[in-house]
């Protein structure tokens, strides 16, 4: 099981990371972490959140940065490297609690040829 997990600066991003690692550990498989910015959090900030989260697990993962057009980069990578699944954070909450899906999530949902999981 080869998972690639997109992590943005949202709470759901870290949830997506945690769940992907647990799944990979159960099923045996590799996780690649792809960091991308949601426009609000800088990539290096996201990377330090991710490092902190990763320290709780005994696992080696590759971490890559997607600086531009993260949606299409994720899909290209998944196809080129033969990932089984793309895992993404399940949206952002608006001030009054509505879930909004980013352009990145929408792009991946519509264009991916693999299974896509949104984590809440």
């Amino acid at each position: 099981m080869q998972l690639i997990v997109g992590v943005d600066g949202s709470d759901y991003g870290l949830r997506a990371l945690g769940e992907s690692i647990e799944r990979a550990q159960q099923l045996g498989g590799d996780v690649t972490v792809a960091l991308y910015s949601d426009g609000q959090t800088a990539l290096d900030e996201i990377e330090s959140l991710v490092s902190e989260e990763l320290s709780a697990y005994d696992i080696d993962v590759d971490v890559i940065w997607l600086e531009e057009e993260p949606g299409s980069q994720l899909i290209e990578l998944a196809e080129r490297e033969g990932y089984d699944q793309i895992v993404l954070p399940g949206g952002q909450r608006s001030p009054l609690g509505k879930i909004n899906l980013s352009n990145t999530i929408e792009f991946v949902l519509l264009n991916a040829q693999t299974t896509v999981t949104l984590v809440r």
Binding site: G91, R93, L96, G97, K98, I99, N100
Partner: peptide
């Protein structure tokens, strides 16, 4: 429901109402 709200279940509903009834709203 629209984009995840209102949530279902009494506890999630109460938590959500707390958010939308805070002082500035």
């Amino acid at each position: 429901r629209a984009q995840g709200i209102p949530p279902s279940g009494e506890e999630p509903i109460r938590k959500w109402l707390n958010i939308v009834t805070e002082d500035k709203s």
